[in-house]
Nucleic acid binder design. Structure first.
Length: 702
DNA sequence: GATCTGGAT
């Protein structure tokens, strides 16, 4: 049984607090047992009599594995009393009383049942990770608690979350602390920042190997490139050690683009008298737990994606980690016995330069999808600019989202959701992709659009991750994939999937073509799911089918490109006169390049098409458009007209740029009724004010 | 002519 878990001793106290309060925050470190035990305690106390207990997880694997463990502990069959629901896989039944689910699934459920009244308790687990979905759920759940004051119980659980802050958000709800079950980890700081953290990691790793007793070493790097470099250097150094001078060593890279069969190597224990070095990205921070780690080397850096709402561009930057991340990394050394963490930075840097917590995703992402989602919920007083977020995104970012939604017809010029937008929100896709599907349904290329949209949903997993070393060897010619007929990457994606379909979804075919099998299977699942959802409104065939005749195929491609132009009206670029660079339209103009991996063809003069839509702007070494599709001037014109008419003040419900004007409308548009009913004090206004101040301060700096 | 931190519906 689970009686050894720290949380069990606190059962009475936790249950008493839950009884007395609608919302409780539970801070429990790794190993406290909160994920598996809380639901069982509530079950024992009868909370499953009036409804189901929902436990959200940020990751699919976690939802499945925790549900499995709880079913086992209760001695029931998984899928009966205890079940889980993740995308593509619902293992629940009428019997289910405890349901583990990803936060994305709960958000989807909330769309068709906004009051979530099948649940008596909602536990938001791992809230400290502050995923985009968790943050939206936090806001929605706060509303729900007000509406269902006496009935619904909410538990927010997390490892290191700033409990006070969440407690304030939920009207000063109680915070309970549960100790974890980690062994002590000794923290060793460097005196100064190394010039090269690869070299410094290498030195530290070799020191450990030569001097320290057995135990695996986990090294945190920022990306695949650095991992590969360090792995090969480590291999050289280990080989040059004198035979028998110390134990053997195995060096394993670990990152997301590694094929699964190579990823799982870290789960098999090392042979006796052998030390493993695992060189990993932040995948090993939370997603994958490697047993046997006793030493951690922490570079102090992470690669992080951030969105700039004024340019519409994502960038992938190497930045310093937060204190929370640093401690999470260190904790990886203390899972099985006392460990050591070597920080390649000084304690002053840690204290003074590192942020306390990681900037939540909601402040680093494009919000078009989230805003559309919230608008579609049709909550009575929902004003997007005033939605109650734990950490509100900037106004700039919300306005950007509104602008984009307007350009793709999801909201009208006053910011109200359109019927098109309503249908879009019901599809589990980014707004541009769902808009493309809707348009394709009108112009007779739904089947093709379904394929492209599914392929784009899989994105990175699609094309084989080519490492540089492979490229240099170049023993194999590049796999002969279709070329998109010159129209660009979307058409190529369509052709690839159609070929796979013609090859009866053969796994070997994928491997021959250098395609990631896992990614392609995912595409197939997504396409099936989308087909089901579109069934009700589909005007044409949903099946994959390639027209035999060249002319008909070209017509299909043209319709597809047209639909993409409508769906991606918010992601349009115009070629510069002199060269093959593009200027983005609809944002502060950016000079961007077609991504080198693109199949977009140039004409006989070596020039790219005048207009393209792109799936994503990303600044890595340079600003690139990833996945581009050629579009035609006549399709672009209506978008340009719409851009001219664009009035952001009107879009944001008259509460846009002018701050003074806004504070007036704010008071009059807020429904006072609800607050009067519940009597819950609301600190929303002050936090909105704080967000506005930050926004203004930033604007002032420019 | 030079590319990819990690999650999720």
């Amino acid at each position: 049984m689970a009686s050894h878990l720290p949380i069990v001793q606190f059962e009475d106290k936790i249950m008493k607090t839950v009884e007395d309060n609608a919302v409780v925050v539970i801070i429990g470190e790794t190993g406290s047992g909160k994920s598996t035990q809380l639901s069982q305690m509530l079950h024992r106390r009868g909370y499953t009599k009036s409804g189901i207990i929902a436990v959200t997880q940020p990751r699919r694997v976690a939802a499945v594995s925790v549900a499995r463990r709880v079913a086992q502990e209760l001695g029931v069959t998984l899928g009966e009393e205890v079940g889980y629901a993740i995308r593509f896989e619902d293992r629940t039944s009428d019997l289910t009383r405890i349901k583990y689910l990803t936060d994305g699934v709960l958000l989807r459920e909330s769309l068709s049942n906004p009051e979530l009244n099948q649940y008596s308790v909602i536990i938001l687990d791992e809230a400290h990770e502050r995923s985009l979905n968790t943050d939206i759920l936090l806001g929605l759940v706060k509303r729900l608690v007000k509406m269902r004051a006496s009935k619904l119980k909410v538990l927010i659980t997390s490892a290191t979350l700033d409990g006070e802050k969440v407690s304030e958000f939920f009207s000063d709800c109680p915070v309970l602390n549960v100790p974890g079950k980690l062994y002590p980890v000794e923290i060793l700081y460097s005196e100064e920042r190394p010039k090269s953290y690869i070299e410094s990691s290498l030195r530290t790793a070799m020191d450990i190997h030569v001097r320290e007793p057995e135990g695996d070493v986990l090294i945190f790097m920022t990306g695949q490139d650095d991992i590969d470099k360090l792995v090969s250097k480590l291999e050289d150094r280990v080989q040059s050690l004198e035979e028998g001078s110390c134990m053997d060593a195995i060096i394993l890279p670990l990152h997301g683009s590694l094929p699964p069969e190579l990823q799982v190597r870290v789960f098999s224990p090392p042979p006796p008298n052998c030390r493993r070095f695992i060189v990993a990205t932040n995948i090993a921070e939370t997603s994958l737990t490697v047993d046997g780690v006793v030493y951690v080397i922490d570079s102090g850096y992470v690669k992080q994606r951030q969105y700039n709402p004024s340019t519409g561009m994502y960038s992938l930057d190497i930045i310093q980690i937060s204190k929370v991340q640093a401690n999470q990394r260190a904790g990886r050394a203390g899972r099985t016995r006392p460990g050591k963490c070597y920080r390649l930075y000084s304690s002053e840097v840690y204290q003074e330069e590192f942020l306390d917590v990681t900037v939540p995703e909601i402040q680093r992402s494009s919000l078009a999808g989230s805003v559309l989602y919230l608008k579609s919920l049709d909550l009575p007083d929902i004003d997007i600019l005033k939605f109650d977020f734990l950490d509100p995104p900037s106004f700039e970012s919300l306005e950007d989202a509104l602008k984009q939604l307007y350009l793709i017809d999801a909201i009208d010029d006053t910011g109200l959701i359109t019927s098109v937008g309503q249908t879009m929100a019901e599809l589990p896709l980014e707004p541009s992709l769902s808009r493309t599907l809707m348009e394709a349904n009108e112009n007779g290329c739904l089947s093709q659009a379904l394929t492209v949209v599914a392929m784009l949903s899989a994105e990175t997993t699609l094309l084989a991750g080519q490492s540089k070393s492979n490229e240099k060897k170049r023993k194999h010619p590049p796999p002969d994939l279709p070329d998109g007929s010159g129209w660009g990457d979307h058409v190529q994606l369509l052709q690839i999937f159609e070929q796979w379909d013609q090859n009866e979804f053969d796994i070997g075919w994928c491997k021959d073509k250098g395609l990631q099998v896992r990614g392609m299977k995912f595409v197939k699942d997504v396409r099936r799911q989308l087909s089901q959802l579109m069934q009700k409104i589909a005007k044409g065939s949903l099946n994959v089918r390639t027209n035999e005749r060249y002319k008909e195929r070209q017509r299909d491609y043209k319709n597809l490109r047209k639909a993409l132009c409508v769906g991606f009206a918010n992601k349009l670029a115009e070629r510069m006169v002199q060269h093959n660079g593009y200027r983005t339209i609809g944002f502060k103009p950016q000079l961007v390049q077609v991504h080198p991996s693109s199949t977009l063809k140039t004409d006989e003069d070596g020039m790219f098409p005048n207009y393209v839509v792109y799936h994503e702007l990303i600044a890595t070494s340079r600003p690139y458009m990833r996945n581009v599709c050629a579009v035609e001037m006549p399709w672009v014109n209506p978008i340009l007209k719409k851009l001219e008419k664009l009035n952001i003040d009107k879009l944001s419900g008259g509460s846009g740029h002018s701050i003074r004007e806004e504070s007036e409308t704010k008071v009059s548009s807020l429904p006072k009724k609800e607050e009067a009913v519940t009597g819950v004090p609301d600190d929303r206004e002050s936090r909105i004010q704080a967000a506005r101040d930050r926004f203004l301060a930033r604007k002032g700096k420019k």
